[in-house]
């Protein structure tokens, strides 16, 4: 992959194949942690951090361990194990050495253990036969797309607070409708193809 192709792939991962709006991965944090833009940004940063690192580690384990023992059919469970352990490790590391970041990420860090977007980023890069650098770039870009989506949506939700919808739409129904509309807006990118 040349540098141009790499950049195009990253651009595609952020906008065209946005994890939330076109693939529907990571919807639970997307709906759960998008009440305020600053917490949404915190979640996005935490996901970016973990997704990039887990992409690198899972690629190594897959290529050097699972492929050589012909155990590729067990990659899902192996990746879950790796991500859970990695998140735990990162949490301990941050707590000791970067307490400021640790307290900023707060509860979101352990929540990422069960974030399907992280797992799917790792699985997708295997599916697409990416090399190490491409995997890391793909995971990073996907996480950026996730961050973009959650922050934009948090901005929408701040405005929704002033709305006066019919009683039946209050709360989550309206939130889901807004998410759907936002996804439709993002589908405008879907015509673009770089392959």
């Amino acid at each position: 992959m040349t540098l141009t192709e790499l950049l195009l792939m990253m651009f595609g991962a952020i906008l065209v194949e946005n994890f939330i709006f076109s693939k529907f991965y990571g919807c639970c944090p997307f709906l759960g942690v998008s009440e305020k833009p600053d917490t949404a940004l915190g979640m996005g940063m935490a996901v970016t951090f973990v997704m990039t690192l887990s992409g690198a580690v899972t690629w190594c384990v897959y290529t050097f361990l699972l492929v050589s023992f012909e155990l590729t059919y067990l990659k899902t469970i192996a990746f879950i194990l790796i991500i859970a352990a990695l998140v735990q490790f990162i949490e301990m590391f941050l707590r000791k050495y970067i307490p400021a970041l640790y307290s900023a990420l707060g509860i979101y860090l352990p929540l990422i253990t069960t974030n399907c977007a992280v797992l799917s980023a790792a699985l997708l890069s295997i599916q697409n036969d990416y090399g190490f650098v491409e995997t890391v770039c793909f995971c990073f870009a996907s996480a950026l797309g996730f961050t973009l989506a959650i922050v934009v949506f948090a901005g929408v939700r701040v405005r929704l607070r002033f709305a006066n919808p019919p009683r039946a739409f209050r709360g989550f129904p309206l939130t889901l409708l807004a998410a759907g509309l936002l996804a439709m807006a993002f589908s405008g990118f879907s015509g673009m193809s770089f392959r």
């Binding site: 384990v61 361990l65 023992f69 155990l71 067990l74 469970i77 192996a78 194990l81 790796i82």
Partner: peptide, 9 residues
């Protein structure tokens, strides 16, 4: 073999 590898992991 998978059991061993996963136990090892």
């Amino acid at each position: 073999i998978p059991m061993g590898i996963f136990a090892g992991l």
